[in-house]
Design a protein around this nucleic acid. Sequence first.
DNA 1: CATGAATGAGGGTTCATTCAT
DNA 2: TATGAATGAACCCTCATTCAT
Lengths: 212, 212, 212, 212
Amino acid sequence: MSAPTRKRLTREESQAQTREHLLAAAKRLFVSQGFGAASIRDITTEAGYSQGAFYSNFSSKEAVLLELLGQHMEEEARQLSNVLAPHETPGENALARLDRWAATLNSDADWSMLAVELQLHANRSAAFAESYLAVRSRHQKRLGAFVAHLFEELNLVPPAPPEDLAAGFMALAHGLAVGRGAGGPDPAGKLIMVFLRGLLADAQPVGRRAGK
Amino acid sequence: MSAPTRKRLTREESQAQTREHLLAAAKRLFVSQGFGAASIRDITTEAGYSQGAFYSNFSSKEAVLLELLGQHMEEEARQLSNVLAPHETPGENALARLDRWAATLNSDADWSMLAVELQLHANRSAAFAESYLAVRSRHQKRLGAFVAHLFEELNLVPPAPPEDLAAGFMALAHGLAVGRGAGGPDPAGKLIMVFLRGLLADAQPVGRRAGK
Amino acid sequence: MSAPTRKRLTREESQAQTREHLLAAAKRLFVSQGFGAASIRDITTEAGYSQGAFYSNFSSKEAVLLELLGQHMEEEARQLSNVLAPHETPGENALARLDRWAATLNSDADWSMLAVELQLHANRSAAFAESYLAVRSRHQKRLGAFVAHLFEELNLVPPAPPEDLAAGFMALAHGLAVGRGAGGPDPAGKLIMVFLRGLLADAQPVGRRAGK
Amino acid sequence: MSAPTRKRLTREESQAQTREHLLAAAKRLFVSQGFGAASIRDITTEAGYSQGAFYSNFSSKEAVLLELLGQHMEEEARQLSNVLAPHETPGENALARLDRWAATLNSDADWSMLAVELQLHANRSAAFAESYLAVRSRHQKRLGAFVAHLFEELNLVPPAPPEDLAAGFMALAHGLAVGRGAGGPDPAGKLIMVFLRGLLADAQPVGRRAGK
DNA sequence: CATGAATGAGGGTTCATTCAT
DNA sequence: TATGAATGAACCCTCATTCAT
């Protein structure tokens, strides 16, 4: 606590560290207890700081949530680009890559539950919705691009706007994740693949004019 | 409100009325603000009663929720049986009926949001989960039977256990409903149909051995 | 309980029965949970009646308590007169009778606890104190007479006014009863006898002028 | 309030002051209205703070009670050691010291009432009993040692285990204190001495085999 | 920047009591 | 007489937030 050998920590570094600790603690609690149930007191206690430290770093519980959401979507984007990148496992065909994506969607059920809670919150708080939508729509677009790319690669016409399909799969994944603990089908990943395969089976090959 | 031949209201009627008022107020608030955000104080004030009146009729906020849930699922079951009954609109083929089901799934987005909040709550409260699962699993089974019946009628082998498929569609509908207010695809019903059609397109006809 | 051979029950009888049931239920709950902790709702539920029935028979919780107290002191008086009556067990000497009295004092710890709670209540509620004192002082006088009689029989001069001595023994018995559950000496009856014997040992024989 | 050399109060002092104010208010109300009847609202209002301030300093109403009890027993122990110490008033004989002890026991009737309410509470709440017994048994042992010391000094064999005798005197003092407001003998101190003297009169001198 | 005691509002729940039936 | 739904006040407790230190 005293006698620094070299510097110790810049004031800025120290503050950044506090921030990080608080974010990590908040993430742990949001995921395990939900956003509404986790109190700021809980978060600061879990992180080992005072409540005041929280307000020195964030303006509200919502602000933390948005920060975490941003981090998480960045992480998901990284996972997605891994799946997308064809060079990674050269011979891998499109369907195998889809499998991997489905697994991605299915994993991290806790985050899915949190994401759902977030959307509910956004639906009811206009103030929060604004900030939330910004980060969410960026993610949606990325997913849409991925889906479009897939159909393209398979020479198929998507049966609906790719972005909507992406939204559908996220909705499916989230809905299944939420229902998991409550008697839902356990191998939710498999179920996602069933839906995905159905979509491909139904799609028309490119070239033939999609009659709709 | 009915048959005021002599007195205004018998005691039983009056009590039933209070109950109804409270349930209606709770429903309004749960749907518009969410279960967690609606306080018992809010509910009783909205209904025009004292807080004590609430506890004369219900044992807890969860109890009201379960009651409302029961009512709602009964209502959904009625809608479902309407769709299911082939005799109703004689010439209607299976796909048209599916369309009507998708519309059913898609309507009532507010209730879907509530259903999701409920599942989240159940996932985190073991006590509530027990009562909740009872009413939920009954509903799930009904839906599963409906899906099984559909595939049967079309002479197709379901690509997954019908009950799981049903769960999938509910998850999809709920997920879409939750995302609706937050930048999701607006014609969610259409999207559900896309997924449904895909499932049918991918299914093998009965008789041919399903090779997997 | 049903199928009355002659009449059903006079209205008066029926009311008396309700009263009795309520009193019995109240006694059970007061003794097991204490006066403060037993709610009127609890009492009526335990007795199998509605809350309204309570107010048809008693004006308040305190009124029930006073009624029960009266009954109890009547009962104690009967026990006391048994002990007092020399004819009952002819050869029995005074000390043996004292032993029996001590046992009487010591038994019924639950009632002792209730009695203490009552006194506390009386000390803090002037309204209750008035009614309470009436029934209590009558009891105290009876006890005093008993003590006086005892010393007389043994030809001893009481070292303090008999009524005060009686109050002392009640206080001792009550104090011990209350402390019993909390690490107090278990054979409290023995301890009471020790004090009693001491009193006798210290008392001057009648005739010698008590020098104070 | 002390040493205002620079600032008015350091943070710690200010907090300690709040704690003290709350404790004092609680003591006042517990003593005058009883533990059960004094609400936390009452206490904080009496002290001039918000309810939250209470919970910043104590975990529950019971916790305050235990704290006060601890303080009180410390105080009693100090009084006791004053009485015990023979050097204090050199020529004072054992009986005179007993007189002083009896006076000690008798004083502070309000606290005695509180102590009794506490025991009742402990008898009915296992959770509270645990914490309560710890502080109580320590006190009991101290008193027992004091009694043992007295008999020793007088070369007398105690007619019962000293700790039980101590418990008996506490029970007597408490019982009398509780009954004081309700028609009990007013000079309760005198009565205690009567019992004490009796005990000594009955005791056998050391050396003679105690024949039972 | 970080502290955490204190605030004030609100949470769910229980209570003795009333009164139309 | 007995009912029990409804009242209104009070209960203990937790919350997000502030602010002097």
